[in-house]
Each structure stands twice: as C-alpha cells, then as structure tokens.
C-alpha cells in the first residue's frame, strides 16, 4: 500500500534533486555577520539561545530543501476514478466499399448532393460527443476489416476517424470479418456496461457458413445490442424484400444478413434509411434506446506540488530574514540598550 502511494509522487526534473545535500549547508554556515568574541565558553549556556540557533538552522535547511524541491517540479500523479454515467460502449463498423461514395440515388454526387459516406460522416460526427461518457471504437471494412481506433473515450480522435470515412472507398463488402473485428473491440473487462454494435453499410454480402458459426459464438459471449443502419440506395432491394427467383443468400444478401442477425438472439434492430434525414432519425432513436448506466473512468489531473515546496521555502526564508533584521552587533550592542540581548544573538550565530 505504502509503496503504491509513494509511487504516485514524481518530479518533472528529478535530476535537480541531486542538489538536496545542499540543504545541509545551514548546519555548518550561517548568513550572519561575524562578531569578535574571545571565547564562547565565557557565555553561560542558555537554552533559549540554543533553541533559537536550532530554529534558524532548521529554517535554513527548510528554505534550501523547499527551493530545490520546487525547482525539481514535484507532482502527485493523476488518479483514475471510476464513476457511473449514462452512456454505452459503441463499436462502430463502417462500410468503406466503393459504393458508399455514391448518393442515395446511386449516382456520383454532384452539386449539393451528398454521398452516403458524407451523410453518415456528418450524422455520426454529431452522434459522437453528444453524450460525454460514451466510449467508441471504430472499425472499417471492405474486402478486409481495418481496425481504425481501439475503444476510447477521446471523442476528438473518434471524430477524426469519422472525418476520414468519406474518402474514396475500396473494393468490396466483406461484412463477416468486419463483424468479427468489431466484436473484438469490446474489452473483456468492461463489466456490465451496455454494449452497442452499430453497423453502417449500404449493402450486404454472403457470410461464409464457417464464419457464421464463429460470429454466433462471439455474439453469444459478448451480447451486444446490434443495430444495422442500412443505407439503402433507391431501387435496390431492401431488407424485407423477397427476391423474385430463388431465395438464397446470393440472390438477396441483405435479407439473409437480416435473417442471420435475427437468429443471433441478441437485441437487434435494423434501420433502413433512404436519405440523410432517415439516417439522422435512426441515430436519434439509437441514442434514446441506449440509456443505461456505464462505468467510466475519470482521470483527475495530476496535482502540482511545486507551489507547496516554494511555500515551505518562503516560510523558512521569512524566519531567516526576520533573524537577519533582528541581528545585533556586539560592539554596538554593548554601547546601546540591546546589551542584555546581544549575547543571545551571538549564541544563535
């Protein structure tokens, strides 16, 4: 316990502490004038003088110690305090395939038109940081999943990751491996915080049956609330549309991904958005659904102890300065009224 407590103290310039032996200097030297006195033994021992001498030595030691410590910049390291707030652990899985750069009408954006990626960038950017205690992780996927940011409470970094999502996308939509990585973003130690997996994509793909089993196991273990924000391009099949021909995953990947999600037995909702307003509405809904307490870590800033060190030094210096002011010279003292006090002062020296 004690070493842990001590380990929290540190200094910005620890090498300065090598000067600490200088604090012994007041034990052997004094800043007072020399006085001519034949023999100290001629003065009767005086406890008050001794105490005064000791006090002034201590003041000198204190002043030097305080100054050296102050220059070294001592501090007490910041604490991490776990509190409870309203929020969730949100793992975002964002489609970066090439089609995300088209508009909801399936065209290249022109003029004031917004691509699907730009719309999700704007709306997700607002979502991040609207609640102070949400934790976010960002994963992107196209052919391969890419870990963009690990789970973090630094919303600036999350927004920077979201800023990058309307850059030109890559090839294909391989959602299976992306889901596996997004699930992996939930820390093992997060306890009973509400976990949200938010999939933002404009299409789906067949998930390899072997990967399906792995995903099922991972979902059963982590039990996130799953939201699929499906950015539907006009005229393309929706989540609920049965294909005209054979009903296979290859013919209707969206529908079968939806069926797969429903079969996972985790809380799941799909939002089919056909325009930026619908995306914003879906995000608002998710926000209102996820209102569970979440433990979050508050980092208390480290405490600067230099001010205290300088304070001690100033206290010691006040004593030294007062002593200096009250200094009496033997020769003059004898002539003046201070004769009775003079020997004391010299003793203190």
């Amino acid at each position: 316990m004690l070493p842990a407590e001590l380990a929290r103290f540190g200094a910005e310039r620890p090498w300065v502490l090598w000067l600490l032996p200088l604090a012994l200097l007041p034990l052997v030297a004094a800043p007072r004038r020399r006085a001519a006195w034949a023999d100290l033994a001629a003065v009767p021992p005086d406890p008050f003088s001794r105490a005064l001498a000791g006090l002034l030595r201590a003041a000198g030691c204190l002043a030097v110690t305080g100054l050296v410590a102050g220059i070294a910049g001592p501090y007490r390291a910041g604490e991490r305090v776990t509190r409870t707030g309203i929020g969730a652990e949100v793992s975002m899985l964002i489609d970066r395939s090439g089609s995300m750069n088209e508009t909801f009408a399936g065209r290249q954006p022109s003029g004031a038109e917004e691509s699907k990626a730009a719309a999700s960038r704007r709306i997700l950017g607002d979502f991040v940081g609207s609640r102070a205690h949400d934790l976010f992780a960002v994963t992107a996927f196209s052919t391969a999943p890419m870990l963009v940011l690990p789970m973090t409470d630094r919303h600036d970094a999350v927004r920077a990751a979201i800023t990058a999502i309307d850059r030109p996308g890559l090839d294909y939509t391989n959602v299976g491996r992306g889901l596996a990585m997004a699930l992996g973003q939930f820390g093992a130690a997060s306890g009973d915080a509400s976990r949200v997996l938010l999939l933002v994509s404009d299409g789906a793909a067949v998930i390899d049956p072997r990967v399906q089993d792995t995903l099922r196991a991972a979902f059963a273990k982590i039990r996130p609330n799953l939201y699929w924000l499906f950015l539907r391009t006009k005229g393309s099949p929706g989540i609920a549309d049965r294909p005209a021909g054979e009903d296979t995953p290859q013919a209707a990947p969206e529908r079968h991904l939806d069926l797969f999600f429903k079969s996972l037995r985790v809380p799941y909702r799909a939002f089919e958005a056909e325009g930026p307003e619908a995306v914003a509405a879906a995000i608002r809904q998710i926000e209102s659904l996820e209102r569970d307490p979440i433990p979050y870590v508050e980092v208390r800033p480290r405490r600067d102890l230099a001010g205290r060190a300088y304070g001690f030094a100033a206290f010691g210096l006040v004593l030294l300065v007062l002593a200096k002011l009250a200094e009496v010279d033997l020769a003059r003292g004898r002539a003046g009224q201070g004769a009775a006090r003079a020997p004391e002062r010299r003793m203190a020296a």
């Binding site: 963009v148 940011l149 690990p150 630094r154 970094a157 990058a164 850059r167």
Partner: peptide, 22 residues
Amino acid sequence: FLLFAPVEVCENFAPLDGAIAA
C-alpha cells in the same frame, strides 16, 4: 487509405498509440 484525419497527439495519445499498435 486514411484511417483517421489529423488528431492532437497529447490529449489523444492512448487511442493513437493503440491504433498504431493495431
């Protein structure tokens, strides 16, 4: 492929370090 736009390095050290490590 841009993973994230420029981020201040001190305030966001932990996620940046984690992203490089990943």
